[in-house]
């Protein structure tokens, strides 16, 4: 037993370095003095501590604006997609209607169509709707892209709540919407939080669609703003790493809360012991 542990620990340690080093390098670079960032010979261990890179990043144009844009995009995406998905998943999980399995198939197929293939017609579509270079264009796109997963996951949470509870409420004289509001929603709350966090992270992290749809600087979301640190003359590495730390924190924090509920979803039930 003992020597097996050692082998596993060595593998674990190697992966810790491989997976962790880029994160370490981002954080230590962010906190270095700017003159230590731009050195031909880099040192593995931090040699200085300063917040200059953060100051330089925050004083770049459109920093606050792009955070605001990201927050608008994220909050509308989360609220609207959760609402639409809640309605749809109730229908999928609780009733058996014609076309139900077609919907399930569609949800799966939608998740598998290459984004890079869809971008071209999507851009032209948004262009003809007058939604190019506007936040509503980004929001609408994000809602559609997170909906399949959100519906799918909520359906899973719903399936775990016994239908008898609602039926009992119906027998006791509740209307269907009342039964949903008083019985179902409170039980579903943890599922709503987890899927809401998923939608938040997707919308907060997404780069490519926003990069294509948005062209003016005052409408950039945070990842598009980050891409602007690179110009033809080079990249502002120190401030870029500082801003990257800031951009990564919300997603990392939220995800560590929701990970247990979301992670297993994809492959759950695949092993039948």
């Amino acid at each position: 037993m003992k020597e097996r542990r050692i082998g596993a620990n060595i593998i674990g340690f190697v992966f810790l370095v491989f997976m962790g080093f880029p994160v370490y390098w981002m954080v230590t670079t962010a906190f270095k003095l700017p003159k230590d960032v731009l050195r031909a010979d880099q040192k593995l261990w931090p040699t200085s501590f300063s917040l200059d890179n953060f100051r330089m990043a925050f004083s770049r144009d459109y920093f606050v604006q792009s955070i605001m844009n990201s927050l608008i995009v994220v909050s509308v995406t989360v609220v609207v997609s959760l609402f639409l998905a809640l309605l749809a998943s109730i229908a999928v999980a609780r009733t058996n209607f014609r076309g139900r399995s077609a919907l399930v198939v569609m949800i799966l197929i939608v998740q598998m169509v290459p984004l890079t293939a869809l971008i071209i017609p999507l851009f032209l579509q948004l262009s003809s709707l007058g939604l190019v270079n506007r936040l509503p264009g980004v929001i609408l796109t994000y809602i559609a892209f997170v909906l399949p997963f959100v519906i799918w996951t909520l359906r899973g949470f719903l399936a775990g709540i016994p239908v008898e509870l609602e039926e009992a409420a119906l027998v006791d004289g509740c209307s269907r919407p009342q039964a949903y509001r008083r019985i179902l929603f409170p039980l579903l709350a943890p599922g709503l939080v987890a899927t809401g966090i998923y939608a938040f992270i997707q919308a907060w992290n997404e780069f490519l669609l926003a990069y294509i749809i948005i062209s003016s600087q005052d409408k950039q979301t945070l990842p598009v703003w980050l891409a602007g640190f690179t110009s033809r003359t080079g990249t502002d590495w120190g401030p870029l790493m500082a801003a990257s730390v800031v951009a990564a924190i919300p997603a990392v924090v939220l995800f560590s809360f929701a990970q247990k509920r979301l992670a297993v979803g994809v492959t759950a039930g695949a092993v039948k012991g």
């Binding site: 981002m26 992290n205 997404e206 780069f207 990842p223 951009a247 990392v252 995800f255 560590s256 990970q259």
Partner: peptide, 10 residues
């Protein structure tokens, strides 16, 4: 988890 949740551009 940190690597997983990080924005792709970061």
């Amino acid at each position: 988890i940190i690597v997983w949740s990080m924005p792709q551009l970061v």
